[in-house]
Structure formats: C-alpha cells, structure tokens
Simulated scan of single mutants.
Amino acid sequence: MVAWGVVMTLMGIVQSYHGLLIARIFLGVTEAGLFPGVAYYITMWYARHEAQFRQALFFSAASVAGAFSGLLAYGIAHMDGVGNLAGWRWIFILEGILTVIVAIIAYFVLFDYPETASFLTEEERAFVVYRLKYQGHKDEVDGGMRVAQNDTFQWKFVKAAFLDWQIWTDIWVYWGLGYTSSTAQLLTVPIYITASVLAIVVAYYSDRVGKRYPFILTCLCIMGIGFIMCIAGGSVPGVVYAGVFIAACALYPAFPGNITWLSNNLAGSTKRATGQAIQIAVGNLAGAMASNFYRAEDAPRYILGHALELGFIGAGILALLVMVFNYKRINAKRERQLAEGAHNGYTPEELGELGDRAITFKYFL
C-alpha cells in the first residue's frame, strides 16, 4: 500500500503521456496484491462458515468508496491552479498521500495472524488458532484421531494449487461474474449502495445456512435475466437500465460468495494463498476482454456486448454445476472410505499434508 500510494502521488507530477503510462503500469504492479491479499487475510482469522460475511463487507466498502470517488475527484478538481498545478494532478497527489497515511497506520493496528495479536489473551489466541487449524477435516475419526492442516510453506503446495482442477473450473464462474463489471460505469450511487447492502445480507444468510453454491447459482440466473432484458429492451432506456440494475444487484452478492467458496475448499495456508491469487489474477482478465465487448459501432443497443455477457454467464453456471457435482461425488466417496477405515493407513501428519486431498477433508458446498 505504501508503494501503491507513492506511485499514485507521483502520477500527479508526470510531464508526458509516456510518463503517465509507465506510472500507471507500476500502479497496477503495486496494487495487484491488495485484493487477493485481503481475501487471504480474512481466511487467516475466520472459519469457513464465517468468511463470506467479512468478504462481503470488504467488497461492498470498496464498491461504495468507488461510487463516491467521483464526487471526491470533482471537489479536488476545483483546486485547479493551486501551487501552479492542474486540478487533475491534485486528485492523484492527495489520494496518493492519503493511501500512504492509511498504510502506515495499518502497519501498527493490523496484526498478521491470531498468534501475534496482542489484543487477544493467550487463551483466546489458542482458541482461534485451534478452530482454524482443524477446520475442513472430519471432527474426529475412528480412534479419536484429529487432522490438522499443514500451514508450513512448501513449494509442493504451490504446485498443487496450479494443478488443482477446482481453481481452474472456478475461474469460469469468476468470468461469469466478472464480465458484469463492465456495466459498473452505468451505475449510480444509489444502485451501488443497494447492491452492496444486498451483498452483505446474502453473505450473512450464506454463512448461517453453511452453503455457497445455491446463492451463487441464483445470482447468476438473475444476472442472466438482467442481460436478457438489456437485449430485449433494445433502445428503450428504462428497460435497459432496469436490466443493468438487476444484473448489478445479483453480481454484488455472488462475487464475494465465489471468492469465499474457493478459499473454503483449499486446505493449507500456502495452497489457499496461491489458489486465491490465481483465481483473482486470471479472473480479472475478464475486464480486459469486457472492455472490447461494447464497441462504438454497436451503439445504442450493444447487442453483441450484452450477448457475450450472457454467454459467459451461461458458461459460469455450467462451471458451477460441474464443481457441485464433483464436490458431492468426492464427499460421498470419502465418507465411504472413512466408513471402511481407509484412513487408518495414514498418520494425522500425512493427512494434514494432503490438505483438501485427504479423505478426511469435506468440501464445502
């Protein structure tokens, strides 16, 4: 965040287009780790059935902040001429300085892990660490054996993340959601706030019920309805706007749900961190493609753009169903193996090293 804030501040003093472009590249480099970093950080403090509510709070706060950033930029732009600098330069300088200040404060108020949190008592730290260490695996198998996930860093866990089918399948679900981000430019502040509130409400109930896929699937279907309205509405602004409104209100609850769902099913902190980074990095390529979906020559109906959005939503639904089918199949197989005593051939440490591949691990639906 410090590096990101410094780069943003320096963007306010560039003197050429090429300088601005290079600075923007470095802004992307320094900013890239924030979202996956926060998503991973939440999993280091909260159990599987608590994480989506916290992810939704972060996602919604960032979205609402983005909605009001235009108003902030409008106000700062009136500083045009102050210090012999153009108003747009002050937008970068002031927001960059604020980012650096917040980052420095965060260093002192945010604790890396529960083990180092001084605001917790020794007993509370032990409790938080214990519940996170043993989550995901069957509470207790024959003989009273308990399996703890292996949180040490090993390159084999990084490799396991790159080779895991669920991460690459989930990316298609992400793309089914991510493409709707191209409609964000059409949203007004009230719609941002409405969608953000819905994200928090849905996340609360998803955590309470202990299910992810029904909520994500429902949201994808509603998004599909929204884009069908955009296509059918043609050049009628009210219908198109209503379609965008519906799609946005479905996207916001589904996005943190999808991020949380994958993290719920990756055991071991190294594999989880790597998997979430892959998911968000590759998933965000959707934005690069979506920016070319809505061509100027397709105005005002943008049939091609809306149809491509709808196609990726359909692909996301299909990928989600594939994941649910496989999760249920694997869970049922592992239940049979446990009943047959197949786990007796492993030590708790060996099962812990297998992570979500262990027969004691149950995938979160």
Results as ranks from 00 to 15, higher is better:
Tyr252Pro: 00
Gly268Gln: 03
Ile280Gly: 00
Gly268Lys: 04
Thr274Trp: 02
Ala267Tyr: 04
Thr274Met: 09
Gly268Met: 07
Thr274Arg: 07
Gly257Ser: 12
Ala288Ile: 15
Ser269Met: 11
Leu285Thr: 02
Phe255Ile: 11
Phe255Glu: 04
Ala248Gln: 14
Gly275Trp: 05
Ala254His: 05
Ala273Thr: 05
Ala286Gly: 15
Val282Ala: 07
Gly275Ser: 09
Gly283Asn: 03
Ser263Glu: 12
Met289Cys: 10
Ser269Tyr: 07
Ser263Asn: 15
Ala277His: 01
Ala248Val: 11
Ile280Glu: 00
Gln276Leu: 15
Leu262Phe: 14
Met289Arg: 01
Gly275Val: 05
Asn265Pro: 09
Trp261Gln: 11
Ile280Ala: 01
Thr270Arg: 01
Pro253Phe: 03
Gly283Glu: 04
Ser269Phe: 05
Pro256Ser: 01
Gly283Ile: 02
Ala288Glu: 13
Ile278His: 03
Asn284Ser: 13
Thr270Gln: 03
Gly275Ala: 10
Val244Ala: 15
Leu266Met: 15
Pro256Ile: 00
Gly287Ala: 11
Ile259Gln: 06
Thr260His: 10
Thr274Lys: 05
Gly257Thr: 07
Gly268Pro: 06
Phe255Val: 12
Gln276Val: 14
Ser263Phe: 12
Asn264Tyr: 13
Arg272Lys: 14
Ala254Ile: 09
Val282Ile: 15
Ser263Lys: 07
Ile280Asp: 00
Thr270Met: 04
Ser263His: 09
Met289Pro: 01
Thr274Ile: 05
Ser263Arg: 06
Gly257Lys: 00
Ser269His: 06
Gln279Ile: 02
Ala248Glu: 14
Ala286Ser: 15
Ala277Met: 06
Tyr252Arg: 13
Ala277Cys: 06
Phe245Tyr: 12
Leu251Asp: 03
Ile278Trp: 02
Gln276Asp: 08
Ile280Lys: 00
Leu251Gly: 04
Ile280Met: 02
Ser263Leu: 15
Ile246Ala: 06
Leu251Thr: 07
Ser269Trp: 04
Asn258Lys: 11
Asn284His: 04
Pro256Met: 00
Ala250Leu: 11
Ala277Tyr: 01
Asn264Gly: 13
Arg272Pro: 09
Thr274Gln: 04
Ser269Asp: 11
Ala254Asp: 05
Gln276Gly: 13
Val282Cys: 09
Pro253Asn: 12
Val282Tyr: 03
Leu285Asn: 10
Gly275Gln: 04
Trp261Asp: 06
Ile278Met: 10
Gly268Glu: 03
Ala267Ser: 13
Ala254Glu: 02
Ala281Trp: 08
Gly287Tyr: 13
Leu266Gln: 07
Gly257Asp: 01
Thr274Asn: 01
Trp261Leu: 11
Leu262Val: 15
Leu285Gln: 10
Gln279Asp: 07
Thr260Asp: 03
Tyr252Met: 15
Met289Gly: 12
Gly283Thr: 02
Met289Glu: 08
Ala247Lys: 06
Leu285Trp: 09
Leu266Ala: 13
Leu266Ile: 11
Ile246Pro: 06
Leu251Cys: 07
Gly287Arg: 06
Val282Gly: 00
Ala247Cys: 12
Ala248Asp: 13
Asn284Phe: 06
Tyr252Thr: 11
Lys271Thr: 09
Arg272Thr: 07
Leu262Tyr: 12
